[in-house]
Design a binder for these strands. Structure first.
Lengths: 243, 243
DNA sequence: CGCCTTCTTGAGATGACTCAATGGTGGTGG
DNA sequence: CCACCACCATTGAGTCATCTCAAGAAGGCG
């Protein structure tokens, strides 16, 4: 049941463009210099690689530059619950005690590029520059809201509604500005197993439910792409609420 | 299906003891003076009263002094998902946009005493005194961890494990210092419906599952009290992890 | 005492799961 | 370039956990 784990940080990429994540966006350049020691490097991770594991001490937290990552907890019988599908721009690896063992695992769904921060220094940053706590608080609050939406979904909705909700969620979050997209097709690297583990059903049942949505003409779907044909219908059956 | 809602703030209590919640605990008194304008009053709320409602603009956020509160979202068909059982000491009503419509509702499970804060002023506080963002960040992170534990439970565990997990969670959280309690009996104001809505099963099934645990000799249970007889067994079947 | 909410229990229905076998697809190496 | 392998998707059939409906009992409150 346990997925084999490959090495992490096998490659480093030195020639990546400089980006600013939400933790630092808009900070004047002279203040940013102070934080430059936080940033270890930009890392390329391959699809399927484990970034950090529940129960282990992870030296780094990350900003996701590109690619999709799943955050999950695992039960003894091997069942997994995906807590969040992390999309580009997300902060990965924040938790109550930054230097304690991780309370969940992170694995790359697609090839991924990450910016790594030393967790110790991040702790220092929050202590010395409390204005960054406010930024992190905003991020934590938005992840909290997302988690609560999923809790409603997993705890109280039918499987069809859960699938529809998941598709709409990753759809809208993958649109950077959160406006309605021009194109109705996006790259979609989630496997049916990933979908199942996110919404608390089996892969077999995820398959049947997806095919129902496909036959209804609401979506089109392959391993690599997702096309949403009937937004209104999906929103209706999933009770999705734009945040 | 919709529960009738009674008025809130029907009574105010002027003679309540001064307490310090986690947002202000340990702050020197001279700094606390600055924040005194935040605190509106201490309020007594009766069991069953709605404190604020999903979709409405709530003027206050709260610290829970005594009693239990449920935070929940509601679907169109009337089904509810309880997101968190709030226990004394908890901060209630924090969300990404403090002054936007609430993303969930709050209702008193037992008679409750609350300390109210103006949400506008709380926003000011975070802006002007960023050290409080760090405190709020810690609280938000611990609620996030709890939410993720429940997501694992609701999404991936059997109903028996979910019930056991819930009982252990409220048990340990109700022990202020998080150490093992002397007594194995606590006051327990949750109804079977509350339990069901927290873990995503029906009330009827919650009843049967509780009775299974009772017959196994793991717990004893009435509407008002909970006795845990076999901690080890509950921890084992629920895969509960002390945080 | 009577009302109303909560709990209890039974019986039948069903959504979701398990097991299992087949087919497709992409990557890798000979 | 093809053959093989690993992973993922598909489909069927039978089983099981949980739900629904329903009715009665118990308990708390005015």
């Amino acid at each position: 049941m346990i997925t084999k784990q490959k090495n992490v940080f096998t490659r480093q990429c030195e020639n990546c463009s400089v980006r600013k994540n939400a933790l630092f966006k808009g900070i004047p350049m002279e203040d940013l210099k102070w934080t430059s020691s936080l940033r270890i490097s930009e890392n390329m991770i391959k699809a399927g690689d484990v970034i950090f594991e529940e129960g282990s001490i992870a030296p780094y937290a990350f900003t996701l530059y590109s690619g999709w990552v799943k955050l999950y907890k695992t039960l003894k019988n091997g069942k997994r619950q995906i807590l969040r599908i992390s999309l580009p721009g997300d902060f990965i690896g924040f938790q109550e005690h930054l230097t304690a063992p991780m309370t969940y695992s992170a694995e790359a769904i697609s090839d991924v590029s990450l910016c790594a921060f030393s967790r110790d220094k991040l702790n220092e940053l929050f202590a010395k520059k409390p204005e960054f706590s406010g930024r992190m608080l905003n991020m934590a609050a938005s992840y909290m809201a997302l988690c609560q939406h999923y809790m409603l979904s997993v705890g109280s909705k039918t499987s069809k509604a859960r699938v529809a909700f998941l598709l709409l969620d990753v759809w809208y979050r993958s649109q950077i500005d959160h406006t309605l997209p021009q194109e109705n097709t996006i790259e979609f690297p989630l496997s049916q197993m990933d979908i199942a583990e996110t919404i608390g059903i089996t892969q077999v049942h995820a398959n049947r439910t997806l095919n129902e949505l496909k036959k209804s003409g609401y979506i089109d779907y392959t391993k690599k792409t997702l096309t949403i044909l009937e937004f209104d219908k999906l929103i209706e059956i999933s009770e999705y609420q734009l945040v």
